[in-house]
Nucleic acid binder design. Structure first.
Lengths: 238, 238
DNA sequence: GAGTGGTCTAGACCACCTC
DNA sequence: AGGTGGTCTAGACCACTCA
């Protein structure tokens, strides 16, 4: 909030003025805003400068334009959250307990969209806080893709990097799913916790832009570790 | 200037060309892109047109600009997910079982940032699939704020709308937190489920832009209901 | 000093909408 | 026909970086 002189460009000032009206509730979702030419006159600036202000608000999600009609205030998306999830946990260390080729069960066949006779590599990794296991991560990758040949390389890699090894950085995206499950069988054993302890299960599917499945991961986390936090709505940061 | 039904504006063509190079891995994160003037010459267009192409890619998150240095390819954010969460569940109905003023316990005091002697309103709502309870939602609102006076209005409202009743649509945002918990005591009773059944707990804090707390909500969901799904990375939609 | 991106202007033509 | 936003031009000055 440091505005001693006038360091701000004109379009930013116009954008701020419009934004403040929306925040104050003077312009509400669905309302039409002043036209470009109106603001040109009001601020005595060129049209491109006004357009830059509108474009900025549009990028912030506050307004949208309907060609030939005008600019309108958007509906806020209070149900849409942004959150960060990473396998890496602070102050924790992890080790692979198992890396080997297997034939996929039905779940993995579906996730990687491969037939039952196509081998996959299964990576199983446990993360520890001190000597207490807090997370179990099981990954599946199609076998025919050439992953780093040296197994030692693989042992320390986490998933986005593993996927990125064979595709270009922007050529894949990830779908995630969050569930609550009880620790059971293998999982309870690996995490050295009681059956019925509630775990967060984060499932990820790594998908190439052309639809090809390049990875599947199940991440079990004991609580309160691996807390997922997100945020939604417009945050004033401009 | 190529014919053959070219509906796309020039800046979009330039953006597409740059984007395709990035997707193909010809330009990688950290790489510098051609300068504005270089592209002006290459495409024989004005500088503002080239700038529009760069601006679009910047808004897509593919590139960023460093003034006086150039445009660079971004690092992809494969750990950042977008997900949607709403109290409303498909094919389900819900009813409030309790709405009353109480004195906040420590947890609610912290969440709403109010003193122990400040009353809050507690709303407790259960969502059913048929006759089976699948979600319990408990909300807390500061008492001094004038919420819809008619209690019957409140009974059918969900949270973003309730908050929006007293603040303008863009004047608040939401922080969420996801945990796995076991059904216990009141919660198990309300959901008519066994103790130790794993539940997803979604906590939301509704915060005004000036920092004022306007709501706190705990949402317990039996599995596999209320599955949270998200997506990350660049999706080709252009 | 040459090159870069950031801002801004004063025009222009277009397609589409509403009156 | 007059208003709207979408695109585009050919200039301009600035502040900054780098060699």
């Amino acid at each position: 909030m440091s505005e001693s002189g006038n360091a701000q460009p004109i379009y930013a000032i116009i954008a701020t003025n419009l934004r403040e009206r929306i925040f104050a509730g003077k312009d509400n979702p669905g309302d039409v805003l002043p036209s470009e030419n109106t603001l040109c006159g009001r601020y005595e600036v060129s049209r491109e400068t006004v357009r830059k202000a509108f474009k900025q608000l549009e990028n912030e999600g506050l307004i949208y334009s309907r060609p030939h009609l005008g600019y309108f205030v958007s509906d806020p998306h209070h149900d849409e959250f942004t959150l960060t999830f990473s396998e890496e946990m602070e102050n924790c260390w992890s080790k692979y307990r198992d890396v080997h080729g297997i034939l996929p069960d039905e779940e993995v066949q579906e996730a990687l969209q491969i037939p039952a006779d196509k081998k996959v590599i299964e990576f199983s990794r446990i993360t520890y806080d001190g000597d207490m296991p807090v997370a179990l991560d099981i990954k599946y990758l199609p076998y025919d893709r050439a992953y780093p040949s040296v197994e030692s390389e693989i042992r320390y890699a986490v998933f986005p990097e593993m996927a990125a090894a064979k595709v270009t950085p922007f050529d894949f995206y990830t779908k995630m799913e969050v569930r609550a499950v009880s620790a059971r069988g293998d999982v309870a054993e690996a995490l050295e916790c009681g059956t019925d302890e509630p775990l967060l299960l984060i499932i990820r599917r790594f998908i190439q832009q052309d639809g090809t499945r390049i990875g599947y991961s199940k991440h079990y986390v004991r609580q309160p570790y691996g807390k997922l936090q997100g945020i939604s709505g417009y945050r004033q940061n401009v």
